[in-house]
Computed example of a mutant assay.
Amino acid sequence: MKSIKAEQVRLTAAMEHVHQEMDATYGSRRMLSEVRELGFDIGRYKVRRLMRQLKLVAKRPKQHRYPTYGKLSVIAPNDVKSSI
């Protein structure tokens, strides 16, 4: 029988390792699947709580922005008027 404390230490070390290996992009759901593949029987909310305690925060992708290069050109003014 394994000690609960030893199991907890192994779990936190595995979570920190996965977090570092995946460049801090995994949230609780993907972390759960990785940790389960490593052989831990754990639920998502426990993973979420442990991630919060260990301060493991998933990075979010940056918002896409279209580049702007100086002044925008206007070919023709928009003079369409409704003719109803």
Rank of each mutant, 00 (worst) to 15 (best):
M1P: 02
M1V: 04
M1C: 05
M1S: 11
M1N: 06
K2M: 05
K2T: 05
S3H: 04
I4N: 04
I4Y: 11
A6N: 08
A6I: 12
E7Y: 07
Q8E: 15
Q8M: 06
V9E: 11
V9G: 00
R10P: 00
R10H: 04
R10C: 07
L11V: 09
A13W: 00
E16W: 01
E16D: 14
H17I: 03
H17T: 14
H17W: 06
V18E: 15
V18I: 15
V18S: 10
H19V: 12
H19P: 01
H19I: 07
Q20Y: 12
M22P: 02
D23R: 06
D23F: 12
T25K: 08
Y26M: 01
Y26K: 03
Y26H: 01
Y26D: 03
G27D: 04
G27W: 02
S28W: 02
S28L: 01
R30D: 06
R30L: 09
R30K: 10
M31R: 01
L32A: 05
L32K: 02
E34R: 08
E34H: 11
E34F: 07
R36K: 13
R36Y: 05
E37Y: 06
E37M: 13
E37P: 01
L38Q: 13
L38N: 05
L38T: 03
G39N: 04
G39A: 01
F40I: 02
F40N: 00
F40P: 01
F40L: 02
D41V: 11
D41K: 11
D41H: 11
I42F: 03
G43V: 08
R44P: 02
R44K: 13
R44S: 06
Y45R: 13
Y45F: 14
Y45K: 14
Y45E: 14
V47S: 01
V47D: 01
V47W: 00
R49Y: 10
R49T: 10
R49M: 13
R49V: 08
L50Q: 11
L50D: 05
M51L: 00
R52E: 06
R52P: 00
Q53M: 08
L54R: 05
L54F: 06
L54S: 02
K55N: 15
K55V: 15
L56D: 02
L56V: 05
V57T: 07
V57Q: 10
V57D: 07
A58L: 04
A58W: 00
R60L: 13
P61Q: 05
K62Y: 09
K62N: 10
K62V: 05
Q63R: 15
H64D: 06
H64K: 14
H64L: 12
R65D: 03
Y66G: 09
Y66I: 05
Y66L: 09
Y66K: 15
P67K: 07
T68G: 10
T68C: 12
T68F: 11
Y69F: 13
Y69M: 07
G70W: 03
S73P: 15
S73E: 12
V74E: 10
V74T: 12
A76E: 11
P77D: 14
N78D: 08
N78E: 07
D79V: 15
V80Q: 12
V80R: 12
V80F: 11
K81M: 12
K81D: 10
K81W: 08
S82I: 13
S82R: 07
S83F: 12
S83L: 10
S83Q: 09
I84N: 11
I84E: 09
I84H: 13
